[in-house]
Design a protein around this nucleic acid. Structure first.
Lengths: 245, 245
DNA sequence: AGCTGGTGTGTAACATGTTAGATGTTGAAT
DNA sequence: ATTCAACATCTAACATGTTACACACCAGCT
């Protein structure tokens, strides 16, 4: 279903704020970047289903741009593992592969446990407050059964922990490696939520950070992500058609 | 110095072996991929120095291709953090940034200690033999003071450990995240080598894997990578011009 | 001199035309 | 009926033309 994309890219913003050559990073919203963002969102949210064909020319027409920025965006998505390109044949939304998901899960555990360990060691008061705030919002979202909101806060929490590690660019790396998993989690959202358990796990992580206990923080994080991993595997039973051979 | 690239891409190989739609992954050597490989190698080996301008059109001419595959290759290198693109202004080999190197170092430690832990837990006899073989080759390279060879064997060893984790695609992810560090290590190669110490550290790692001791393996790996991290910082004193502000 | 605005130049971004390869189909030979 | 080769079709890869923008330079003003 590409219809939803129609016309989303009209009246493009001016791309650069000012003279900025080799200066601070400005939000360089090229068409390529915009198309990338739209397609990525569509894939992760399963608006574009695994295995579905992507016709570049059609996408270009629908978004009102030429084939070039669409191709560039898709190349990037291919590097990220979200689309599969078969040269001279076709482009498809990547199907889910258990072994790739397993690797992504491993990378996620490795990066985020290490990050939370640093975050706990750094442990500023400001981050502790931010984390508590997020947790409170999660509780509200859970009470009103707002799955989408809960999901977004969950992502935000993990991003905040990466930032709290104090390592420049770690959040982006972690987010990129997490994209496969995010896709699966979105699909699971419709089946099951585990919100109350998740909430408790998040609370444990945040407490460990606040208490500046790196080892405990790492342990709680590992438990949390691992439990999610078990959930991910259940999806294959429920929706086998989404998976590659 | 781009002159070295001249004509390296002539008589392109046929790109696909046979009818292979959605079948096994064939080495799809598109021009884009070839240009990517050439440029990446040139950057990591410092044949193209940090901060140096890359003129796409010139590269295209030198390699005998059009601007399109060159642009695509460079986009990928930009995602990888090896080049900096300033829209409408110019493209440059990425300078070195201490904070990015620090993050890359962190990611490397996180991934490779986790990988070696799994490798030690899996611990097949075949991998132990392979690792010993590599170590022996390293010893020979060290004896004959063949820095380049030693460096390559070092990389191969880390790749083998990723593979021994049994996680599909982990090697590629680790290699990509390591590219910043590889570049710095290449530069250091000319100043200092530490081959004998490195050899001992590698031996400790391999012994731990062979002994199927995950905790020890992780510890030796962490020590090893961390020591390298200290070396990396020394480069800034020696070659400050390579670094960004 | 220092600041400001106009202009020129070079580059990446974008658009579009062309080529080559992968797949599906058809039809003839066996 | 089955095999296989020629062909048609569709798509990504590649080539090339065009546009827009960042920056440098210079002239004129204060």
């Amino acid at each position: 279903m590409l219809a939803g994309l129609q016309g989303e890219l009209h009246n493009l913003q001016p791309r650069f704020s000012s003279r900025n050559y080799k200066e601070q990073k400005v939000v360089s919203t090229t068409r390529k970047d915009q198309v990338y963002g739209i397609l990525r969102q569509a894939i992760i949210s399963s608006q574009l289903a695994p295995g579905e064909a992507i016709r570049k020319e059609l996408v270009a027409t629908q978004l009102g741009v030429s084939r070039t920025p669409v191709s560039e965006a898709i190349n990037r998505l291919a590097d990220e593992g979200l689309v599969e390109i078969y040269p001279q044949a076709g482009t498809f939304v990547a199907r889910l592969w258990l072994d790739k998901i397993e690797t992504a899960q491993f990378v996620r555990v490795a990066l985020e446990t290490a990050a939370v360990r640093r975050a706990a060691a750094n442990g500023t008061v400001e981050t502790a407050i931010q984390l508590r705030k997020n947790l409170e919002d999660q509780r509200k979202a859970a009470e009103s059964l707002d799955f989408e909101q809960f999901y977004e806060l969950d992502e935000a929490l993990h991003d905040m922990i990466c930032d709290a590690s104090g390592l420049v660019g770690l959040r982006e790396i972690a987010a990129k490696e997490r994209s496969q998993i995010d896709r699966v989690r979105r699909l699971l959202l419709h089946y099951e939520t585990r919100m109350s358990e998740t909430l408790l796990e998040h609370e444990a992580i945040i407490s460990a950070i606040s208490a500046r206990d790196p080892d405990l923080a790492a342990k709680t994080m590992e438990d949390h992500i691992s439990k999610m991993g078990i959930m991910l595997l259940q999806l294959q039973q429920k929706r086998p058609e989404l998976f590659g051979s």
